[in-house]
Structure formats: C-alpha cells, structure tokens
Simulated assay, not measured.
Amino acid sequence: MLMTTLGAVFLPYLPPERLRSIVEKAEECGLEELWLWEDCFRESGIATAAAALAWSDTLRVGVGLLPVPLRNVAATAMEIATLERLFPGRVRIAVGHGAQDWMHQVNARVESPLTLLREYLDALRALLRGETVSTEGRYVTLRNVTLDWPPERAPEILAGAIGPRSMRLVGGSADGAVVVAGTSPAALTEAISLLNEGAHAASRPEPVPVVLYVHAATGPTADERMEGERERWGYESTVDRVVTGDAKAIAAAVRTWAAAGAQTVILQPTPDEPDLEGFIEMVARDIRPLVD
C-alpha cells in the first residue's frame, strides 16, 4: 500500500504577513505539504506559493485552486513553469471553475464553465510540456504560443471538481483531482468512481490521484469551532464530514479517508484556529507517524 501524503492548509482568511512563520514552522517540523488558496479577493496563489517556496528548502507547496476564468492560460503557464524551474518538484498546482458568484463580480463568469476548464487544461498541460500551441476554442485562443522556459519536466496539473460532470471532466483531462472538505468517505468513493469513468472514457490511467481537504480541529474549543464551520458551509451534520480530537482521533479519520481512495489528505484548520503553528506541528510530528 502506498503511503498517504499528509499536509495542512494556510487559509487565506489570515493576512499574508502571517505566512512566513507558518512556512518556517512547517519546514522545521517536516510537514510534507502546505496548501494555499487563491480565494477572491484575498491572496494570490502564485505570489504566496513563490514566497513559501523561497522561505523553505524541502516543503512542498500546493495551490488549490487557481480560478481559470480570472487567468489567461499563457500567463498561468509562465508562472507555473517559473516556479517549477526555480523549485523543481516542490510545487503542486490545481485549477478550477472558481466560485461563480465571485466570477460574476469581476465580469469573468462564462456560460459553460465545463468547456472553459476542458480547453484550459488541454492548453495548459501542452504548454508545460514545451509544445507550441495553437487553438481556437470557445474560450481559449492561442496562436503559435511556446514557452521560452518550460520546465525540464512538466508538473502535474490537478483540477477541482464537485458535480458529476465536472468530476468526469477532471478524470479525463487533469492529472488528478482536488476534492473539497466536507466530503464523507462514502461520497469520496462515489466521486472517485466518477473520476475514473472520465479517465476510462479518455483512455487515461486509472485510478485518478486524489487530494482531499478534511476539516480538522483539536484542543478544548475544537467542537465549538467546528460547529461554526458546519454553519459556515451549510452542512446539516458534521458526521463523517469533519474530525475533531487528539492526534489519535485525527489520524484514525485520515486513515478512513485514505482507505476510501485519497492519496493525499490535507487537514484544513478552522479560520479561528487559535494556534496555527501548534496545529502545523501536531500534523507533522504527532499525526503523521500514526497515519501509515
């Protein structure tokens, strides 16, 4: 059995200047992966990733996810290629539809998010392979575009998905999927089935690799804070959607989600986590040894 990768999220509800101490703690403790979000209108995923990579030597940094309606695909390819050349093998990038309300706010909402994501993934992955790309799609148009500095080895490009059609698209067009927190083990199994359907239809490898966010909290106020998350995200119940408790309880939950098909589990603290450095240290030093 493959070892489960374990990481944590730096939520963009915190100001950017908080990032350095979190990165330094993650590096010190040996955290495997630190993931960042590009939520509107908070923090840039690429800028924070570049800083986090520069402040560390071994930490892998994920960005999940970049909203494609906001970003020209050539610019995104240039940014990813630059990060990969500067910090080989240490960056993981996911793209996705973006929250449609936010896209509407900036006049970037499209009629067919599925078409845009498919065109975007095809073009982005080709550019990062060093190909010269010409395409006249519904949303993505490129004319003889080639990166001057493509990465020596094209990085994986993941994509976020929620609904069945998006799941099948991601399975057929991306190198893996990012699945949102609040997904139960049973729902994850169903999602992976849809991802694999898409991969099979596109004659691509199965099973599709999955990065899963998991709501997690520890300490004396953990349950209270997680109730706030339930209300914030609109869950009817927290059963099988979140985990609270000590290192043993959280590790047991991680193993359950891993058994359901997640290769990477990224623990997502509550926005009001009172000691994020302590949370990072607990993930790396206390939970990690109990997962595999």
Rank of each mutant, 00 (worst) to 15 (best):
T141W: 09
L142D: 06
R143L: 15
R143F: 14
N144C: 05
N144M: 04
V145A: 07
L147F: 13
L147P: 10
D148S: 03
D148R: 01
D148N: 00
W149A: 14
W149Q: 07
P150C: 12
P151Y: 12
E152T: 13
E152F: 02
E152L: 08
E152I: 14
P155I: 12
P155F: 12
E156Q: 14
I157H: 01
L158C: 08
G160C: 06
A161D: 02
A161S: 06
G163I: 06
G163T: 15
P164S: 04
P164W: 13
M167T: 04
R168P: 00
R168F: 03
L169T: 06
L169P: 03
S173W: 00
D175F: 07
V178C: 06
V178I: 15
V179I: 15
V179S: 12
V179M: 15
V179Y: 03
A181C: 08
T183L: 06
A186H: 01
A186E: 08
A187C: 03
L188N: 12
E190Y: 07
E190A: 11
A191H: 08
I192W: 11
I192V: 15
I192H: 05
I192G: 01
L194S: 13
L195Y: 03
N196W: 11
E197L: 07
H200S: 10
A201K: 00
A202Q: 06
P205R: 02
E206F: 05
P207Y: 04
P207D: 09
V208Q: 01
V208L: 02
V208G: 00
P209L: 01
P209R: 03
V210G: 09
V210Y: 01
L212I: 05
Y213I: 04
Y213M: 07
V214D: 07
V214P: 01
A217Q: 13
A217G: 06
G219D: 05
P220Q: 12
A222S: 13
A222K: 13
D223T: 01
R225S: 08
E229D: 14
E231L: 14
R232D: 00
W233E: 04
G234D: 14
G234N: 14
Y235V: 05
Y235H: 13
Y235D: 11
Y235G: 07
S237L: 10
S237D: 15
V239T: 09
D240V: 03
D240I: 02
D240F: 07
R241N: 04
R241Q: 10
R241K: 08
V242W: 06
V243Y: 06
V243A: 11
G245Y: 06
G245L: 05
A247M: 08
A249P: 10
I250T: 14
I250A: 13
I250P: 08
I250Y: 11
A251V: 01
A252K: 12
R255I: 00
R255F: 00
A258R: 14
A259S: 04
A260K: 13
G261P: 06
G261V: 03
A262E: 09
V265K: 04
V265W: 09
I266G: 07
L267K: 13
L267E: 14
Q268R: 10
Q268E: 10
Q268D: 06
Q268A: 14
P269E: 12
T270N: 07
P271S: 14
E273H: 04
P274R: 10
